[in-house]
Amino acid sequence: MKFKTPTLPGRLAALLLLLLPVAARGAGELNLFGWSEYIPQPVLEGFTRETGIKVNFETYSSNEEMLAKLVAGGGRYDLVQPSDFTAEAMIRRKLLQPLDRARLTGLGNLAPEFTGRAHDPEGRYTVPYMSGSVGIVVNTEKVKTPVRGYRDVFQAVHRDRIVVVNDSRELVSWALYALGLPVNTIDAASLARVRPLLAEWIKLVKVFDSDSPKTALLNGDVDLGVVWSGEAALLWRENRKFQYLLPAEGAHQFVDVLAIPAGARNVTEAHRFIDYILRPEVSRQISAAFPYTNPNLAARRLLTPDELANPASYPNAGKLESFRDIGRSAADIDRLVTDLKSAK
């Protein structure tokens, strides 16, 4: 038997066949840009299984990184996951597009305190994903003195036993709280007041780690820290000796939201994903993997008593406050922290 060279129409048909899957994929695709360690893989798989929509998942580890890539990459992303204060700036900058709320059937599952917040008062652009706080975690086996606030953490006796998130704005806000200053209006004067206090604190810290501050605690390299509540919740789940508390002076509460960038191409798919996340059983899955505070009331009802008892996920009432967009001051804060770290 001999093989014949295919005719021109034959070749074109072959070429089309090769292109077909690409075209098909383009129709049912979602380019998701989310935090690392925040969206469980089974949730993504479940979504694809149900809808046939392929999820291209990319991650970032800071709001600023996400912004940098979003601004540089144009319409590459269909769905992003900013923190509330970043979403606020993005709305102001017209980087987000309004949601079609009619398509989001699960909005009613959300707890009222997580809707209509300052960053998006009418809920036109964002849907809350998870919420959390930045608080103090203590290894109660090692630290016997009572710890209530930032000033108790940053004591000379804890020198080199402290881990904190490596986030300049967080660091500065703690000192602002400790000094009784507002955390959302930052100017040269308030930074000048923060400086000497923060300088002392930074000298005491052993590890700055935003990605996995729990590691140093778990490994016994440090005994206490100021970390994301989700990290603290995982520690508590591991061992009850890790206790979480909201600092008495005040603490940052963040709400991370889902939002669709202005240039998104797959808007329909993005809406379907948001609605999928709003389902109680899906949201419950997220809570199990990453025990932050779930804003989805219906999902919370599905949690075990043990999960609800986690002090880091559902802390006792404290003085919680949202961050607001501070614009140009971000660079001043970074400069201050760089300066203080270098002075060590």
Partner: peptide, 27 residues
């Protein structure tokens, strides 16, 4: 960052910070 606990910034950390945290690309 990993072995030093990000305590003492080196020039690489500062540059990385300018691009990803402070978002001061020109600097």
């Amino acid at each position: 960052d990993l072995l030093g606990g990000a305590r003492v910034p080196l020039i690489g950390n500062v540059i990385q910070n300018q691009f990803l945290q402070a978002r001061d690309w020109p600097f």
